[in-house]
Simulated assay, not measured.
Amino acid sequence: MPRHEFQPGKLVAGLFLAITGALYLGDALGGWEVPWFVAFPLVAGGLCLAGVTGTVTYAVRRRRRSRAVG
């Protein structure tokens, strides 16, 4: 399998989606009760945080690349 760059933005998005899924799985199994609207701030906040993380990662890698070349 070819190696690829680590992308922390995708990790953050996946973590927030997994947390949301786990909350609703617990609700479906009767462990606790989660209101239906909880998913919106979790998913939206996770995607916003993933976007910020991806942007910062891109900026850091671009800066490193420019220092290595120049």
Rank of each mutant, 00 (worst) to 15 (best):
G51P: 08
L29I: 11
I19G: 07
A39D: 00
G51N: 12
W36L: 09
V43R: 00
C48M: 14
A44C: 13
L42N: 01
P41R: 07
G21L: 15
T20K: 06
A28D: 01
L23G: 05
A22E: 05
W32H: 10
D27Y: 03
P35N: 02
L29E: 02
A22V: 10
P35R: 03
E33I: 13
A28M: 05
W32Y: 12
L49I: 12
Y24V: 08
T53K: 10
A28R: 07
G51D: 11
G51C: 08
E33M: 03
A22F: 14
A44D: 04
A39I: 08
E33L: 04
T53A: 11
F40Y: 10
A22G: 10
G30N: 04
W36G: 06
G21H: 01
A28F: 04
F40P: 00
A39L: 02
W32V: 09
L29R: 15
A50F: 13
Y24F: 15
A39N: 02
A28K: 02
A50V: 09
L49E: 11
G46V: 11
Y24G: 01
L49Y: 11
A28E: 10
L42W: 02
G26M: 08
W36N: 06
G30I: 05
L29A: 12
W36P: 04
A22W: 13
G51A: 15
A50K: 13
I19V: 13
G45F: 14
V52E: 09
A50Q: 08
G31L: 13
V43L: 12
G21A: 15
I19Y: 12
L29Q: 06
V43G: 07
D27A: 15
L25V: 14
A44S: 12
A44F: 12
F37M: 05
W36H: 09
A44M: 14
L23T: 04
V38P: 02
P41D: 08
I19M: 13
G45L: 06
P35A: 06
G46L: 11
A39V: 12
A28H: 02
F37H: 14
P35G: 09
L49R: 06
G45K: 04
G45D: 15
I19Q: 06
L29S: 07
Y24A: 05
P41Q: 09
L47A: 09
E33K: 15
L29N: 03
T20D: 15
V34P: 02
L23Y: 09
L42G: 01
D27W: 03
L25I: 12
A44N: 05
W32S: 03
G31E: 06
G21D: 03
G46D: 14
P41W: 00
A44K: 01
V52F: 08
T20N: 15
W36M: 05
A22I: 11
A39E: 00
F40V: 15
T20S: 11
P41V: 10
F37E: 03
G31W: 14
L49W: 13
L29Y: 02
G46S: 13
G51H: 12
G30A: 03
